[in-house]
């Protein structure tokens, strides 16, 4: 479980996060949703320790991030997996080298064990016959899947995904969502996903935090989304006519 308490973060005069309190549940897909510029990515990076907090505390199963030494922080990072918005695959390495990179760097496995684990993760995300290709040679959807394989290769306890299906067609986006949810349940990972994709919210939102202007203004799950009377939340999720119709249909049932 990850707990964020009273998180504040500013960049110069811009006060981006304004006292966020949130809890992210183990073995669930926890979503952070909000408009562009609402502070989702900054919040995620604060939880990862990539940005220092101005105020507040992040706890990983009772380990307070601010009180960890540099070495303890590095050890904690071995328990984290991250899928970046643009995949952030290493350009100069092949697909196989990208996925095996954390194992090569930190594990004591031999070459054949590393190859087996890498192939297992690539198969798990349905990547076949692409081991020797470079990131520039594969599609955006494949890059996302390789990034997921790289994120889970070290068996992380916590998986962070920053808009994992941005820039993908609806079908591929759905495949990526389902894949992340399956992996979360299969390996009992605490998964945190930043998104503003409404299909993701309604499909995989076990627990949802809604941010507006750097503040959390609503939380619930994908069922609660249909029945909430929180106007801002409802307007955000059901902004299109299609979604409004779906909401009316669900509420009338």
């Amino acid at each position: 479980m990850i707990r964020a308490t009273n998180i504040h973060k500013s960049f110069g005069d811009a006060h981006v996060l304004r006292g966020i309190d949130a809890t992210f549940m183990e073995g669930k897909t926890n979503l952070i949703i909000g408009k562009s510029g609402s502070g989702k990515t900054v919040f995620l990076k604060c939880m990862l320790g990539l940005h220092d907090l101005d105020e507040g505390e992040i706890e990983y199963d009772d380990r307070r991030l601010s009180q960890l030494s540099v070495e303890e922080r590095r050890k904690l990072r071995l328990e984290l997996g991250m899928v970046f918005q643009g995949s952030a695959l290493f350009d100069s390495l092949s697909v196989e080298e990208n996925v095996s990179f954390p194992l090569q760097m930190f594990s004591k496995m031999n070459a054949s064990e590393i190859r087996d684990r890498t192939n297992f993760c690539l198969n798990r995300v349905n990547i076949e016959n692409a081991n020797s290709l470079f990131p520039a040679e594969i599609s955006g959807g494949m890059q996302k899947r390789v990034a997921i394989a790289r994120a889970i290769v070290m068996n992380p306890k916590y998986l962070f995904c920053d808009e994992p299906n941005s820039g993908l067609d609806p079908k591929t986006a759905m495949v990526i969502d389902e894949l992340i949810q399956e992996i979360t349940y299969e390996f009992n990972i605490t998964t945190i996903i930043n998104t503003h994709d409404m299909n993701s919210v309604l499909q995989i939102g076990d627990h949802i935090n809604f941010l507006v202007g750097g503040k959390k203004v609503w939380e619930g799950n994908k069922e609660d989304v249909f029945h909430t009377d929180h106007e801002e939340m409802a307007n955000f999720v059901f902004s299109s006519e299609l979604f409004k119709k779906v909401r009316r249909a669900v509420r009338s049932e």
């Binding site: 990539l50 991250m82 970046f84 760097m105």
Partner: peptide
């Protein structure tokens, strides 16, 4: 392209 952030997150 956040590749350096990816390295940092890996530890």
């Amino acid at each position: 392209s956040e590749q350096i952030d990816a390295l940092e997150v890996m530890g």
